[in-house]
């Protein structure tokens, strides 16, 4: 008696044996390969396609590289460094600098936005302070001195972003009395020229 498993096994064996007895004649496969060689499809075509692909990839990479700097803006952070000077009680360096480990903790602040907050709250807030000082241009930076109490240095980048009360940087004289506004965090918000200066007592 033939079991189904035995039947299946025998069937498969017979099939494989039969297949081994019926192989594609060598002359047929040789003829097919010969035809393939004669057609050989302008095989530059395949090579050309691959070359096109490689060139397209290279072009995309190049464009990506060229366009990247335009899109990539390094965020700048307002930085205030407070030290004590030889001639001044306090020296403050105000500048915009790229993100650092320390600065990463500070939120990015647009001085013009802060100025709007200042003007809105001007009448009621005590969060903003204004002082009068002498503005001077010193090579790559500007300085504001308040007698011998304070020396405040401002880098050009920060100055260009400050609210100058409709004035241009070029309007400021090499040395001029100004009123500067700072917020509760001590950040400069605005600078405007004033006509009257400050009387400093001899210390």
């Amino acid at each position: 008696m033939t079991t189904p498993e035995h039947f299946e096994q025998k069937l498969q064996q017979q099939y494989q044996h039969d297949k081994a007895c019926h192989v594609l004649p060598q002359r047929v496969s040789s003829e097919i390969v010969r035809r393939a060689r004669s057609v050989k499809r302008n095989n530059g075509m395949g090579l050309w396609r691959n070359t096109q692909l490689a060139m397209s990839c290279a072009l995309l990479l190049l464009m990506g590289y060229l366009l990247q700097p335009a899109d990539k803006k390094v965020p700048l952070y307002y930085q205030v460094v407070v030290t004590q000077g030889e001639h001044y009680k306090e020296v403050q360096q105000h500048r915009l600098s790229p993100q650092t480990e320390y600065m990463a903790l500070s939120p990015q602040v647009d001085p013009s936005v802060v100025y709007q907050q200042y003007t809105a709250a001007q009448q009621r807030s005590t969060a903003f302070h204004y002082h009068t000082g002498l503005l001077r241009q010193q090579e790559e930076q500007w300085q504001i001195t308040v007698c011998d109490d304070l020396l405040l240095t401002i880098d050009r980048q920060l100055l260009s972003q400050l609210n100058l009360q409709q004035h241009k940087l070029s309007d400021f004289a090499q040395q001029q009395w100004v009123e500067f506004v700072s917020n509760s965090a001590g950040r400069l918000v605005a600078i405007k020229p004033v006509s009257s200066g400050l009387y400093c007592s001899e210390s």
Partner: peptide, 8 residues
């Protein structure tokens, strides 16, 4: 892609 008869 290559047209090489070897693959055929």
């Amino acid at each position: 892609d290559t047209g090489s008869p070897a693959y055929l």
